[in-house]
């Protein structure tokens, strides 16, 4: 945890050195927010529910989408970005020989704090959506949202780690994260709108859609406690599997390269 703090501080100092960059990012974030609102405006000018979701619920879902996207762009994306290069050049050894968990290091070593703005924007959207919801937000629904979001992030993290562990076998996978982003786009809207095959794909195989849909359902009071438990179990299981897979990959790498 202290290490994480250090990474954050370093990155913040880096970013502060490029203030122009900071304003650009802020402008871009606000612009994409405006774009998202225009999209919602267009859809809801024709209907008051999309697949049973009201406009406020969709705004909350969009907020969850940006929180998750922000986390990935702040931490996971930049940290994992270098791993392909490092395996190819053999410099990953420097990471593996550090006296800290290698999984932790490759996952969180680089932080682009400016990208965290997107998380704030997402949180703002969630807050705005909640304030307009007709029913009261109770303690349980708030908890369900946060819990589902945390589980979702854990699942996504595992998926991300899993994808990147593949690098030990397939060196040229520079663009594998593009697949993720393409599918992640689907998470902008409720999963209920998608045809069956796509829903199965983004729920079970590449679990990107659930990260946004489930928390939003949670706050709308449509998530039963039982599903929360199932969800926690799924998150724990995926964390476990991906972590084992990472260690397996490292073992494979070190035995192959020595």
């Amino acid at each position: 945890m202290r290490l994480l703090g250090v990474f954050f501080k370093i990155s913040f100092q880096d970013d502060a050195a490029y203030r122009g960059e900071f304003w650009m990012r802020l402008a871009a974030t606000l612009y994409s927010l405006a774009g998202a609102f225009v999209g919602i405006w267009i859809f809801f000018s024709h209907t008051d529910r999309i697949a049973g979701w009201t406009v406020d619920e969709v705004v909350i879902l969009l907020g969850a989408f940006h929180i998750v996207a922000g986390v990935i762009r702040t931490v996971l994306g930049p940290s994992f970005e270098r791993i392909v290069e490092e395996v190819r050049e053999g410099t990953l050894d420097f990471v593996l020989t550090k006296p800290a968990s290698s999984q932790f290091l490759v996952s969180f070593r680089r932080i682009v704090s400016a990208a965290a703005m997107e998380c704030l924007m997402g949180a703002g959207l969630v807050g705005y959506g909640i304030s307009r919801l007709s029913q009261q937000t109770g303690l349980y629904t708030a908890f369900a949202f946060a819990f589902a979001l945390a589980c979702g992030l854990a699942v996504l993290y595992s998926f991300w780690l899993f994808l990147n562990t593949l690098v030990f076998w397939f060196v040229r996978i520079d663009n594998v994260t593009q697949i993720f982003w393409a599918l992640f786009e689907a998470g902008r809207y409720p999963l209920d709108i998608y045809p069956g095959w796509l829903r199965v794909l983004v729920t079970y195989i590449v679990p990107v859609g659930v990260v946004t849909t489930f928390p939003a359902q949670g706050i709308a009071g449509r998530l039963a406690p039982a599903s929360l438990l199932w969800y926690a179990a799924a998150a724990a299981l995926s964390l476990y599997i991906s972590s084992r897979f990472w260690r397996f990959g490292v073992a494979h790498y070190t035995s192959a390269s020595s």
Binding site: F43, H46, T47, I50, A51, N175, V176, Q178, I179, W181, A182, L183, E185, A186, R188, Y189, D192, I193, Y194, P195, L198
Partner: peptide
């Protein structure tokens, strides 16, 4: 190839949104 698949995401997503509306 991945880039190409990515270009299909937008049309499929919005097809779904509008279909359901």
């Amino acid at each position: 190839f991945i880039w190409t698949l990515w270009s299909l995401a937008g049309p499929i997503i919005h097809l779904s949104v509008w279909s359901s509306i």
